[in-house]
Design a protein around this nucleic acid. Structure first.
Length: 221
DNA sequence: CCCCAGGCGTCCA
DNA sequence: TGGACGCATGGG
């Protein structure tokens, strides 16, 4: 029953917005870097930071690993939290080197890989799952603030629902399908950017407007 | 001036 | 376990 609603939401968003073509990055490594830089940050700011790295030919694991942390921080400055994120990138690069590079990760089972990613300082559930899905094509659903907001708004999860709990809803509803997970999550972000899923009165023409639970006014937060 | 953005680690009860 | 807080730039 919950699964039915989940599929309904995908149907509507897909019909309204069409293919999103995610992730906005050209290589798996660029996806990884973007996933870390975009933590609680507008993507437009991340683009500037990535452009800085690209411009200098540093957007490869080998080259980036040789950039000192303080220099790296200045380069990614537009992405905000630059001191923290510079360290996070370095921690990830160290981990990646230990693992033998992105290619070697193909041999590691998804669950094991996820646990390993989560052991890196600065990589939490969403960042790990973004890397797994968008850089490595693993069937892992990414739960972000937009997704949580939409599900809460439609009364599909409570305020206390955990990341894992919400993730299970999708695993149970639409099965392990990387292409579908990819598109679906991108659609959630697309919807979340719309005014109707921020604070304030509900807007007209929202794809989920006439779905059960659509409120007249958003809840705070 | 305000609020917000594709989180996470730390600290503390 | 879970809530508060710091981290920081850029756009509306």
């Amino acid at each position: 029953m919950l699964g039915q609603t989940v599929r309904e939401i995908h149907e509507r968003l897909s019909g309204a917005y069409g293919p999103q073509g995610w992730w906005p990055g050209q290589t798996p490594f660029e996806v990884c870097v973007g996933a870390i830089l975009t933590q609680n940050t507008a993507w437009s700011n991340v683009e500037k930071a990535i452009a800085n790295l690209k411009q200098r030919g540093l957007l490869s694991p080998e080259r980036l690993a040789h950039v000192p942390v303080d220099e790296l921080a200045l380069l990614i400055r537009p992405a905000g939290y630059f001191n923290q994120k510079a360290r996070k990138l370095h921690a990830f690069l160290l981990w990646l080197t230990e693992k033998g590079g992105l290619g070697a990760l193909a041999e590691v089972p998804t669950e094991e890989l996820r646990e390993s990613l989560l052991s890196v300082k600065g990589i939490g559930p969403e960042t790990a799952d973004s890397i797994l899905l968008y850089a490595l094509g693993r069937p892992v659903f990414v739960i972000d603030a937009y997704t949580v907001r939409v599900l809460r708004r439609h009364g599909m999860v409570g305020d206390d629902a955990s990341y894992c709990e919400i993730q299970e809803i999708f695993a149970d509803s639409i099965g392990p399908d990387p292409a579908l997970f990819n598109e679906f999550h991108a659609l959630f972000v697309r919807l979340g950017k719309e005014r109707c899923h921020r604070r304030g009165p509900a807007c007209e023409g929202c794809p989920l407007e006439d779905l059960p639970g659509y409120p007249a006014v958003n809840e705070p937060g």
